[in-house]
Design a protein around this nucleic acid. Structure first.
Length: 339
DNA sequence: CCTCCACTGGAAGCTGCGGTAT
DNA sequence: ATACCGCAGCTTCCAGTGGAGG
């Protein structure tokens, strides 16, 4: 039933977008001076997960590039390229040769210098999930490179600003903001409809299944498309003759935890043990947690390191911490349905 | 209300790794 | 070979904080 699997992938950028005209126009207008070679302030895109921030940013920049020959652009996911070095490397990779740059022995200053020396056409850098960036001062360094224009994408605006110093704080506060809200059910259904049109055989769809999926996804397009993908996959592998509401409902939890599972897979053994302990307990005090952790691994890390792990797990939204100092409790954030 | 102390998170220092330079 | 370099991950140290119990 799947005719083009690409359109169901999370990173797929459609050739046309619906329902986000206002945001696309807002973003293009903010970046338009670049076409005339004028310097442009950064743009800050914010909104909850799965509302098309990444998609619209990439789409708009791509369209801008088509309208102007002299424009470079690069997309960097700060979750994956979380360190200063990795981010800089990706950015530099978009415009210059990086073959002689070696991961270990090249100081990050050299990367930055090279980027400062850049004198090509205007360069748009999309920094996705920028709140995940470890060293936010990099943003200040990038800000001061005139040829470089940043498009910053954040889920949690407060968390981003908390990590910034005053200089950058006031500057980013003043820059163009594009805010995304969750999709209404009708728009989500329309988006799913497009994906079906591009990549699925609609004969296999039960009437009304797309609104059901939209309902299950609660305004989150990434989840909606994930459910559609997994449901289509289920229909295909089990040779069902229809994608029904019940199949959609069946795969929905798995689709919802997919992103979380990817995050868990990225954890080290020690981090995973800690995550498991919290999951099993539901809620636990720091003292009990550390004790349980030490019982369960061979060469346990120190408490301080475990605290760093906990901060990381919290940032990945795998766990939550309530209360201050002695009242602190760590708890699970989800259904914990990890296969 | 006051004191204790479990806990947090910043800072500095150490180590091992992957790499270059001599 | 050997010395050296920068980084990431870890540890050690510590000042600060707020909940619990006298």
């Amino acid at each position: 039933m799947i005719t083009d699997a690409r359109v169901l992938q999370p990173e797929f950028v459609p050739g046309e977008v619906q329902h986000r005209d206002a945001e696309v126009n807002h973003l293009s207008a903010a970046l338009r001076p670049l076409i005339d070679g004028d310097p442009t302030d950064p743009v800050l895109i914010d909104g909850p997960p799965g509302v098309g921030k990444t998609c619209i940013a990439r789409f708009t920049v791509e369209r801008l590039r088509e309208a102007s020959v002299a424009l470079n652009h690069q997309y960097v996911n700060c979750w994956e390229e979380y360190s200063r070095f990795k981010t800089l490397y990706q950015i530099l990779d978009g415009v210059a040769s990086t073959i002689d740059i070696h991961r270990q022995s090249t100081p990050t200053d050299v990367l930055l210098d090279r980027l400062r020396d850049y004198d090509g056409p205007p360069y748009i850098v999309i920094l996705d999930e920028v709140d995940q960036l470890e060293d936010k001062s990099l943003l200040y360094d990038l800000y001061r490179i005139p040829e470089l224009t940043m498009v910053l994408i954040v889920n949690d605006e407060a968390q981003l600003f908390a990590g910034l110093d005053d200089r950058l704080n006031s500057r980013l506060n003043a820059c163009t903001r594009v805010h995304f809200d969750t999709y209404p059910k009708s728009e989500l259904t329309a988006i799913l409809h497009d994906r079906v049109r591009w990549g699925l055989n609609a004969d296999y769809l039960q009437d009304g299944v797309l609104p059901t999926i939209a309902e299950l996804a609660a305004g989150d397009a990434r989840t909606a498309i994930g459910i559609l993908r997994q449901a289509a996959h289920t229909v295909h592998t089990n040779s069902h003759d229809m994608l029904t509401d019940s199949i959609a409902e069946e795969v929905a939890p798995a689709a919802r935890t997919e992103i979380r599972r990817n995050a868990v897979e990225r954890l080290t053994h020690h981090q995973e043990v800690i995550y498991t302990i919290i999951n099993e307990a539901g809620e636990i005090t720091p003292g009990d947690l550390y004790e349980a952790y030490r019982d369960r691994v061979d060469n346990s890390k120190t408490k301080r390191t475990v605290r760093n792990y906990l901060a990381k797990l919290e940032q990945y939204n795998l766990i939550a911490a309530d209360g201050q100092t002695k009242g602190r409790r760590y708890r699970t954030l989800t259904d914990a349905a990890l296969a």
